[in-house]
């Protein structure tokens, strides 16, 4: 099991997809910093380029690099079929469940590792140009607290893992790059937009849509954006939202990984 994991890690670092996504990340850091600098230069009383704002915006799974990650994870997974490396591992005597589990681990490391580097670099650029500065409102989320940032990081990590599990599930079943990318990206966007809509329409009637936050891993992003406006510019996670922001992505991680493993075992490998 350790051998197959080490080999998959070795291949990932040498994979073109990994190199491409690293370059995309660096270009995006530079671009977002430049964009923030232009915004700050052209507006009075508003600051975009701060550490805390760069942290929360760069970590979002529904924006730039956050969307690029599942697309590249799909490329990595489809490559396993194209190059026949899934096949090699099974021929070498590994159980299909081990092979799939390794793919989940590699997908998680790929996603969390790269988003961590991207967020750290973005935050660093924000700190260099504008300090961390919690007193300045962040875009979308308004005034942030240390507790909010901590919770936000935790929920984001879980959401990224949920999207990674979903992406691997879709790509190992569809086995087609274009089709898988379309399904994953459209799903992420629909989940985010519906969470905004549901949270907006549920202000005052929250209980009517209560179930949705427990099954949508991106609900907390839409909900906090809406809540920030409702709370007069202060971002918070209420108790129910805090729990559902952990439960929903965990549900996705468990469901798609278990389902993915079963499908992978049952299916013939080309």
């Amino acid at each position: 099991m350790l051998n197959i994991f080490k080999s998959a890690l070795y291949k990932m670092f040498r994979d073109k997809t990994f190199h491409v996504v690293c370059i995309i990340g660096l270009v995006l850091v530079a671009f977002m910093t430049f964009l923030g600098y232009i915004i700050d230069q052209s507006t009075d009383g508003f600051k975009y380029l701060t550490g805390q704002n760069m942290l929360v915006t760069s970590m979002s799974p529904v924006q730039n690099f956050g969307l690029a990650l599942p697309i590249n994870l799909i490329s990595l997974t489809i490559g396993e079929y194209t190059f026949g490396t899934f096949r090699n591992k099974i021929i070498a005597g590994y159980r299909k469940s081990y092979v799939y589990f390794t793919m989940i681990l590699i997908g998680s490391i790929f996603t969390i590792g790269l988003i961590t580097i991207y967020v750290c670099l973005s935050t660093l650029m924000g700190v260099i140009f504008g300090g961390f500065d919690l007193s300045i409102p962040a875009t979308t989320f308004g005034i942030l607290s240390g507790q909010f940032i901590g919770q936000y990081i935790l929920y984001s990590v879980l959401t990224y893992l949920a999207i990674a599990s979903f992406s691997i599930f879709i790509s190992t079943n569809i086995r087609n790059h274009g089709g898988s990318v379309s399904i994953v990206v459209v799903s992420v966007m629909i989940l985010y937009l519906t969470s905004l809509f549901v949270r907006l329409s549920s202000v005052g009637h929250f209980d009517d849509f209560n179930f949705y936050q427990w099954i949508n891993p991106l609900y907390c992003y839409g909900a906090t954006s809406v809540d920030t406006i409702a709370n007069g510019g202060h971002a918070t996670f209420n108790k129910t939202l805090s729990i559902s922001s952990v439960v929903a992505p965990m549900l996705w991680i468990v469901v798609f990984n278990v389902l993915g493993t079963i499908c992978f075992i049952k299916r013939d490998i080309k």
């Binding site: 051998n3 080999s7 090699n88």
Partner: peptide
């Protein structure tokens, strides 16, 4: 099976090293 399963973006040495890893 059908064709050799190799990673085209890796060198011959890297492909063999990769296979060595999963074979232990």
């Amino acid at each position: 099976v059908e064709a050799p399963s190799l990673v085209p973006t890796m060198t011959a040495d890297e492909n063999l090293k990769y296979a060595c890893m999963y074979y232990g």
